[in-house]
Every structure is written in structure tokens, then in C-alpha cells.
Computed example of a mutant assay.
Amino acid sequence: MKTVSAHTLAQGAPAKVRRRDREKTKAEILQIAFEEFAESGLLGANADAIAARAGITKRLIFYYFNSKEELFIAVLEMAYGRMRQAEESLHLEALAPEAAIRRLAEFTFDFHQANPEFVRLVAIENIHRGRHIQRSEKLTQMTRPVIGQIERVLAKGKSLGTIRPEINAHELHVTLNAMSIFSVANRHTFEAQFCWDMSSPEAKARRRTEIAEVLWRYVRCDEPSAIVDLGSEERPPDA
């Protein structure tokens, strides 16, 4: 067996430590920047404040991310990546069409409720007309898995005659996110204007149930299936 000297171990250790520290530092910068950007926007967020909270120098931030805009793109990639990773655990194809649609609706609502900073970050990127997402190939590809899941659920439902044939996966995704995000993005103004509770656990539970019901009623096919197994039918004799 080959003997490894203490000197050799000592030589290799610093590189591993530096690598580990580097990744840990970058992750801390991204998390703190995520919070700062969500609170103050791209223009209002301060690199000095991010550096102070991370216990590092501002120069180190730009060493890792080059510029404030590149840091913002990296934060967007991290934030969207968390949502897409959570979506992968849904396994919608294993469910019946109605259960899958309701599960998708409930998951989307729950994610936005649990991550209001993500909703704010998306709103901020829309203020900038999505230009940072357009610069990231990773971000433009992130939507494919969830759209693929929805397409497979719709295809299954259409083949069974339980989902309307004209339903489109992208349109459905838009509709669901619009309903779910409203409860987070517009909660304060809606409560102030209409004196309507949107914040209590009871109000959130009602809204969650309603969105799932609305989405399913929208996609479902109320007409009986037109699919007929002619092989099981008794055919009339030839004329």
C-alpha cells in the first residue's frame, strides 16, 4: 500500500479548503444579494451593503461576478433554479389528469406564498423588460421541464377525453401564475382598497382551493368522450 506523507496531505489541504470556501462565499453572496435585490431593486441595491453583510470586500464580489448586472443575473438563475428544482418533484405524469392539474395549481400557489421575495424579484426583472433573462441561456432553458410536464398531463387528459383539446400548456402556465402571483404581489393594495382579508391562513387556504377549482373547471371537458372502441361494437351486416 502506498504511504502518503503528512507533508503531502498538508500540501493538498489548502487547495481543498480554498475551493470549499470559494463556493461557500459565492453562495452567501448570492443569497444576500437575492434579499437585497428583492427589497431594493437592481438600481437600489448596494454592493457595499451586500459585502458588509457577507463579511467580505466589495472587490471580492466583483471578482466573482464582474459587475452588478452579472450578479443580478446570477441571482435570477439561482431563484428560478429553486422553483424549477421544486417542480421536478411533482411527478404529475403519475397522477390522473384532474389530480395532476389540482396538484400543479396547489404547488404553484404554495411556492409563491412561501417565496414573496421571488415574486418581487420577478416584478423587478419585468420593470427592466426581461433583459437580464434574455442574456442568460440557462434561464431561457429553465422553462422547458415544467412546460414538458404540463404538455404530458394535457396529452393524457385529451386522450382520455377529460381535458379539452384546445388547451395549450404555455397559456395554462400563464393563467395559473397570474392567479397565484396576484395573491402575493397585489395583496397589500387589494386589502387596503377592498378591506378584504388575503393574509390570514384561512384566507390563503380558501384562495388555494379556489385557484385549483378554477383551473380544473377551465381545462376539463364536460362533453362525454367521443372515443369509441369500434372493435368492441357489433358491426351491421353489409348492405
Rank of each mutant, 00 (worst) to 15 (best):
H7M: 07
T8I: 03
T8E: 14
L9Q: 13
Q11M: 09
Q11S: 10
A15H: 06
K16H: 08
K16D: 11
R18Q: 13
R18A: 07
R19V: 02
R20M: 08
R22P: 03
K24P: 00
A27T: 14
I29P: 10
I32K: 15
A33V: 01
F34P: 02
F34Y: 15
F34V: 07
A38Q: 02
E39N: 10
S40N: 15
L42C: 03
A45I: 10
A45N: 04
N46C: 11
A47Q: 12
A49Y: 00
A54G: 08
K58T: 12
L60K: 07
I61A: 00
Y64A: 05
F65M: 03
F65P: 08
S67A: 11
K68S: 11
L71K: 06
F72N: 06
F72D: 11
I73K: 06
A74C: 12
A74W: 00
V75M: 05
E77Q: 13
A79N: 06
Y80E: 12
R82W: 01
M83K: 14
M83G: 04
M83N: 05
R84A: 14
R84S: 14
R84Q: 12
A86I: 13
E88A: 06
H91D: 15
L92N: 01
L92Q: 01
L92G: 00
E98K: 15
A99G: 01
A99H: 01
I101G: 06
R102T: 02
R103S: 10
F107C: 11
F107L: 09
F107S: 14
A114W: 07
L121H: 08
L121Y: 12
V122H: 06
V122S: 02
A123D: 07
I124C: 02
E125D: 14
I127G: 05
R129C: 07
R129E: 02
R129P: 00
G130M: 08
R135K: 15
E137A: 06
E137I: 10
Q141T: 05
T143P: 00
R144M: 09
P145S: 08
V146T: 09
I150C: 09
A155W: 04
G157N: 09
K158G: 12
G161V: 03
G161H: 03
T162C: 06
P165Y: 14
L172A: 13
T175A: 15
N177R: 03
A178C: 07
A178G: 05
A178V: 08
F182K: 04
S183Q: 09
V184W: 13
H188Q: 15
T189P: 00
F190L: 12
E191L: 04
E191S: 11
C195F: 11
W196A: 04
M198G: 04
M198S: 04
M198V: 06
S199V: 03
S200Y: 02
S200F: 02
E202I: 09
E202G: 04
R206D: 14
R206L: 05
T209E: 12
A212H: 04
E213R: 13
E213C: 08
W216Y: 09
W216Q: 02
R217F: 08
V219N: 03
C221H: 14
D222E: 15
D222F: 09
E223L: 10
P224I: 08
P224S: 04
A226W: 09
D229T: 04
L230W: 09
P236A: 12
